[in-house]
Design a protein around this nucleic acid. Structure first.
Lengths: 327, 327
DNA sequence: AATTTTTATTGGAACGATCATACGATAGGC
DNA sequence: GCCTATCGTATGATCGTTCCAATAAAAATT
């Protein structure tokens, strides 16, 4: 008969012959309870199969022990996996700190802002994790204005630099390492295939390549993100004779790889970005983003190095250095 | 000064000069309130920026309006994307019905069982969504025993067939369609590349191929799931001369494709399963699982076609027919 | 031995909503 | 004009926990 109603703290108190508060103490701060009574209470808890009701506790403490994160609509592309990995990692690290992760979905900015308002108004979460921040991010501005604790996966690219905590991948460091590696292994002419101007992270990744190239020169191409687009862009270039190619994404890298194979240069060293399964399957080198580190960093920003409750945050940032995977 | 404490239902009642209950009625069942008082109350709500506290409501109603779903650890392979898409879709459909989705992470079965117990004991969720069910699934058994409402993405492969609601992809229908298509377009000898015996969904997918082949014969290979494994398995086969190949996964299909290219038969028609980004990028046909339909089906099982609260479920199943994407 | 401090436990209030029930006012039936 | 329905609103209890202040008992100080 598993339908029996769950035992409450009052039931345990009666069974053990103590007050409710003492039971609560045994559960939450056992150290202040005398050993003999603690054992008595623990036996009663055991006997009744008592487990504190999370809802009641949250109402009383005004802490939900829950953080929210947006799950982006499935984009269908090669990328997007990085965010999924990030959510995976966030869930695991959060569980280790006794936090739950709540998802919300939004297709548009307006919808997301509405969701953020709802989550904050109803007191559903202690903190929010934003992903994919952009220059002058309206979500960040809104949360700041409302005083909702949050941290972002992504830099505050604009001027509000110091206004909230964030963690991001150091894209420039990634492409710098990739370029340096190719310069050493392949030759002087290492080209770059990036996105059209206007993308913050695109600029960041291109900067790494430029810095590593120094005085050397090599073609710099752009294409919208996508396999076909990358293939098209590189097709025109190959006759120019390059020694290697650094790309802003795995999708572009795969396109470039296909173009290289078609042009009879299957051995052309190419490096992508994101280390997706597709790149792995094709044996293409890539820059691995380590979203697990980002997740850990975000939680540390929100709750301190060890804490299990959301605390006041310093608005500081953390750049995680990605890792080059050579294949 | 956004630090002002949030207004409660009592504040609104005082402001509007009515009782708490009337405010509650305006929020939850406006139709039973006289128009004049309703307007008065709505004005007060507006003025104070009142929003009901979700925690208090949940404690009183004993409904969390939350469902839990496990997020698998990132597997790193080509597959796994289907589950992510499913979670995406589930979150969106749930939001449309006023439900939230809570994530939990687990690396082992034991850990998952522990999490399930905790979620149930603490009354954190109204229902649980299981993914990747197997024969004699211990999680399903546990939840049934404890009386926790749940539905599964995946068939109850064993004998407990009718014990709980489930939704699954009709894998056999997918491979049947793929095989039929190749028989029509490519020729009589359509081979199958599956997994080693023991996988329920593997058997299911192979069955579809067999059924479509009927009296015709063609090689049937197996390999562990993976690009390299698929490539190896097909390398030996190609001299045999086949007209097409149906695979149990995109990873195998990609491996097969690479083997075909190396063997000088790049045009060999191959069909994968899951329609992952990698298959798309390489122009390989694939069977698309439509996890969005599965998500909608799961919610319907839990809450009825229109409902927004978890109701008693009939233990019935639903098979979703996948779609063949020809490239 | 009287006083202060510390330790262990208790009882009531509070968190913020909804439920069940009771009440007053208006309307309808004869 | 009396009795009964119906409607709209109000009151108090309740969900299950933790906070707060108070108390009783034990230990330490003078």
């Amino acid at each position: 008969m598993p339908e029996r109603k769950a035992a409450t703290i009052g039931d345990v108190a009666r069974e053990a012959g103590v007050s409710r508060q003492t039971v609560s103490n045994v559960v939450n701060s056992p150290s202040i309870v005398k050993e003999s009574t603690r054992l008595k209470v623990q036996a009663a808890i055991e006997a009744l199969g008592y487990s504190p009701n999370a809802l009641a506790r949250r109402l009383r403490t005004q802490r939900t022990s829950t953080i929210a994160v947006k799950l982006d609509p499935y984009s269908g592309g090669v990328s997007g996996v990085v965010l999924d990995r990030f959510v995976h990692a966030l869930t695991e690290s959060a569980a280790a700190r006794g936090l739950r992760v709540l998802l919300y979905a939004a297709r548009t900015l307006e919808e997301e802002l509405r969701h953020l308002d709802e989550l904050a108004d109803a007191g559903e979460v202690d903190a929010i994790v934003l992903t994919g921040t952009s220059r002058g991010d309206r979500r960040a501005a809104r949360l700041l204005e409302r005083g909702v604790p949050f941290a972002a996966f992504g830099r505050p690219w604009g001027t509000e630099a110091a206004a909230h905590p964030w963690v991001d991948i150091d894209g420039a460091a990634g492409t710098r390492a990739a370029t340096a590696d190719l310069l050493e292994r392949a030759g002087e002419r290492i080209a770059f295939l990036g996105w059209p101007a206007g993308s913050e992270s695109g600029n960041d990744r291109e900067r790494g390549w430029r810095e590593a190239m120094g005085e050397r020169t090599a073609p710099r191409l752009t294409a919208e993100d996508g396999v076909a687009e990358g293939q098209e862009a590189v097709k025109a270039l190959l006759p120019n004779g390059i020694d290697g190619l650094v790309c802003a994404s795995d999708a572009l890298a795969i396109g470039a790889h296909l173009a290289a194979v078609q042009a009879g240069r299957p051995e052309l060293p190419i490096v992508g970005f994101d280390n997706t399964a597709a790149a792995e399957a094709l044996g293409i080198s890539s820059v691995e983003q380590l979203p697990e580190r980002v997740a850990a960093g975000i939680l540390e920003m929100l709750m301190g190095p060890e804490g299990n409750k959301v605390a006041k945050q310093d608005p500081k940032g953390l750049l995680v250095e990605p890792r080059l995977i050579v294949r």
